[in-house]
Simulated assay, not measured.
Amino acid sequence: MMLPERRELLLKERDKQGGIPPPTLDDHQLEKMNDVIVQSIEQERAVTIQHIDF
Rank of each mutant, 00 (worst) to 15 (best):
V36A: 12
P21Y: 01
D27S: 07
G18V: 01
R45W: 04
G19Q: 02
K12L: 08
Q17M: 06
L25P: 00
T24G: 01
I20N: 07
S40K: 05
K16L: 10
Q39M: 11
E42V: 06
L30D: 03
R7W: 07
V36R: 14
P4M: 09
Q39I: 06
K32C: 02
R14S: 07
M2F: 07
L30M: 09
I41P: 00
E44I: 00
K12N: 14
P4Q: 09
K32V: 06
E42G: 01
V38S: 10
K12F: 06
F54P: 01
Q43A: 13
L3K: 14
L10W: 12
T48F: 14
D27K: 10
L11I: 13
D53A: 07
Q50V: 15
D26Q: 02
A46D: 15
E31Q: 08
Q43W: 08
Q39G: 09
R7Q: 11
K12S: 10
V47Q: 15
A46H: 15
L25K: 02
V47A: 13
M1Q: 08
I41R: 10
M33V: 07
L30R: 15
E31W: 01
M2Y: 07
R45C: 09
E13N: 03
I20L: 08
E5P: 00
F54T: 05
I37N: 04
I37C: 06
H28Y: 05
P22L: 03
H51R: 12
L30F: 01
P4A: 13
R14C: 10
E13H: 03
L11G: 03
R6I: 09
T24Y: 04
G19D: 02
L10T: 12
I49C: 09
